[in-house]
């Protein structure tokens, strides 16, 4: 236990630490710069898209009102109305939410509350994995299975339709909704359930009256993410939408949502035509911002 006398040596004593402090301040500035790059990227993206997209209305005398509410999109004749696409995007998104959200949430509840542990242990990671599959493959599947199915069994002339888009988008958002919602439901403390069960509530009653409300913010996040995936999806939708420029009036109409309009024409568009595609991008962008905002409000109200 005796310790030998410790001889002093030159650690730190007298040596100047100037170099270290210089490195310290240099590195922290470098890190800040890296962090600011994401701000710069966002500014560049918003700036470029808005600058190009607003140019026809500011400098070239096009009417923004006619752009939004015009029903004709004929670039060759200088007609740029995106009303059919706006309606198509809204219908497709709402339709896919109506199907995808309940199935996704119920699956999440099943996996976290009802399913035997062994079953959940296999299914949960599998579903999670499916969230990572390229969305184009969902489109390929839609074109190969759903479109012919609609043609043959519903007697449509053309299976590529609003209905096909809704079904494929609903399927595509399932893994996202299930994974995020399941995580948040699992995070609800056990004591909530025990408290409710101890008061004589049934298992199912407890789940829907106690557990699900407690996981509300996570469930909202799940819906927002699923929604984002649906409204922003492009390439898969091109394959199954039919891309007709009409205001859809029924589920069987061929549609062209905002996203596909950009992807289909960007390759050859120039001049005002190209700027109008950027304007389409602005509308899409605004949609997503508004939807996120609304959902955030809803969940905030729910929390009170």
């Amino acid at each position: 236990m005796t310790s030998p006398p410790i001889e002093k040596h030159n650690i730190g004593n007298g040596k100047s630490n100037k170099r270290k402090y210089m490195l310290e301040s240099l590195s922290s500035k470098l890190f800040l710069l890296c962090a600011l790059l994401s701000v710069l990227s966002l500014l560049l993206i918003v700036g470029f898209v808005f600058y190009r997209g607003s140019h026809p209305f500011i400098a070239e005398g096009y009417s923004f009102f006619e752009f939004i509410f015009g029903v004709d999109w004929v670039p060759g004749e200088d007609k740029f109305g995106i009303f059919p696409m706006i309606v198509a995007s809204i219908y497709a998104t709402i339709g896919s939410l109506i199907i995808g959200v309940p199935i996704g949430l119920f699956t999440a509840i099943f996996l976290s509350e009802i399913a035997p542990k062994r079953v959940a242990k296999i299914i949960s990671p599998a579903v999670q994995l499916l969230a990572g599959i390229p969305s184009v493959l969902y489109g390929v599947f839609g074109l190969a299975i759903i479109v012919p199915f609609l043609q043959n069994y519903l007697g449509l002339a053309k299976g590529q339709s609003l209905l096909a888009v809704i079904v494929v988008l609903a399927v595509m958002m399932l893994p996202t909704i299930v994974t995020v919602a399941e995580t948040s439901i699992r995070a609800v403390p056990k004591t909530y359930r025990e408290g409710s069960l101890a008061l004589g509530a049934s298992e199912i009653g407890t789940i829907f009256k106690v557990v699900v409300p407690a996981a509300k913010s996570g469930i909202t996040a799940a819906i927002v993410l699923g929604l984002g995936r649906a409204i922003g999806e492009t390439m898969a939708v091109i394959l199954i939408a039919g891309n007709s420029l009409i205001v859809p009036t029924s589920l069987t109409d061929s549609i062209r949502p905002l996203t596909t309009n950009i992807a289909l024409e960007m390759g050859y568009a120039a001049g005002v035509h190209q700027e109008m595609l950027f304007a389409t991008g602005i509308v899409l962008f605004s949609f997503i911002m508004i939807l996120n905002f609304v959902l955030a409000k809803i969940s905030a109200r729910g929390a009170n």
Binding site: M1, S3, P4, I6, I11, G12
Partner: peptide
């Protein structure tokens, strides 16, 4: 860890510091 951060790289010197310090801490 500390001595290295001060720039001591010599293996022998480090060995010595480690042994002395561990002895010092019984």
């Amino acid at each position: 860890y500390g001595p290295r951060a001060q720039g001591i790289k010599n293996k022998k010197e480090l060995n010595k510091i480690v042994e002395e310090s561990l002895r010092g801490a019984a």
